[in-house]
């Protein structure tokens, strides 16, 4: 099994990332490149579905931190869903659960992201 694979799909204006494996200093480059490509393509609302993410180290957190300002400047956001307990603990320990909106599942996150669409 690869250390990290990342599936990307688009639902409305939300780009959903599904990383499978772990994100550490070894695998972070692929994660960072995927995030940066989305932002480059103007996809500023990004949902990270972490159901298959076994752990994330500070290298991965840094990749997310590096883009949060950019996406918010473009009225987007980085949302998190389906965090496994140990991944939630990492985010929460660093106070990141106050910085990012965290949802129990993907549907809740998509529902929360939807009202941003204005007519």
């Amino acid at each position: 099994m690869a250390d990290l694979s990342i599936a990307v799909r688009q639902v409305g204006h939300v780009a959903i990332l599904l990383p499978t494996g772990f994100i550490n200093a070894h695998t972070v480059l692929g994660f960072e490149e995927t995030l940066e490509k989305l932002v480059k393509d103007g996809r500023y609302t990004i949902l990270l579905n972490c159901k298959d993410l076994s752990y994330i180290s500070s290298a991965g957190l840094g990749a997310i931190m590096g883009l949060i300002e950019t996406v918010r400047e473009h009225d987007g956001d980085i949302l998190l869903s389906n965090l496994q307990d140990n991944v939630f603990t990492i985010f929460d320990t660093l106070g990141f659960t106050q910085l990012y909106r965290v949802f129990g599942d993907e549907a809740q996150a998509l529902a929360a992201a939807a009202p941003e669409q204005k007519g």
């Binding site: 500070s58 990749a63 590096g66």
Partner: peptide, 10 residues
């Protein structure tokens, strides 16, 4: 928000 420094904190 910025990169770096979080590892030591964890």
């Amino acid at each position: 928000p910025r990169k770096g420094g979080l590892g030591l904190l964890l």
